[in-house]
Amino acid sequence: MTPLPQHPLRRVVISTFEDLAMLFTHGTANDGGPTAPVTCAARVAFAGPRSGFVDVRASDDVVAAAARNMLADDAAGPDLCFDAIAELANVICGNLTPSLGERDAVYRLAAPVRAPLVPAPDADACVELAVETGRVEVRLVFTEPAAVRS
């Protein structure tokens, strides 16, 4: 695992959950925090000087809280709940790309899609955080050549 993107990923994940979903992180999921299973996962692929994807995987209560806060709706259905996690993945990916080198590079982001609930192997960076009473895992994976289709 490449250590370089670790800190930018962590910073971007925390700020995105706080600013977009008004959800606050408290430590890592490995610190004896919540171990709830992941029930929703979204992937955003990026292409530019480097190509790859960002997976955001979240447990049920994080998904529900994100949808509730982002939509001001206590009864968001499954599609909107996924859309909330997908938008978090989109914003995380968009704000992460300047940290990947060549700050002025233009990256193209693909539309978010559902990601496997099983974590992607060989992540180049990974952040696991306790959020509210649940947990979030975010993985950055570089793929060469470009992962985004034109």
């Binding site: 977009l20 914003v91 968009g94 704000n95 700050r103 590079a105 990256y107």
Partner: peptide, 23 residues
């Protein structure tokens, strides 16, 4: 948008658009 490239943001501004960064 989440777009962060200063070059692209400048290009959009030259096309007469204002820019608000997400979030």
């Amino acid at each position: 948008s989440t777009e962060s490239s200063p070059t692209r943001v400048q290009r959009l501004r030259q096309k007469g658009a204002l820019f608000v960064h997400k979030p």
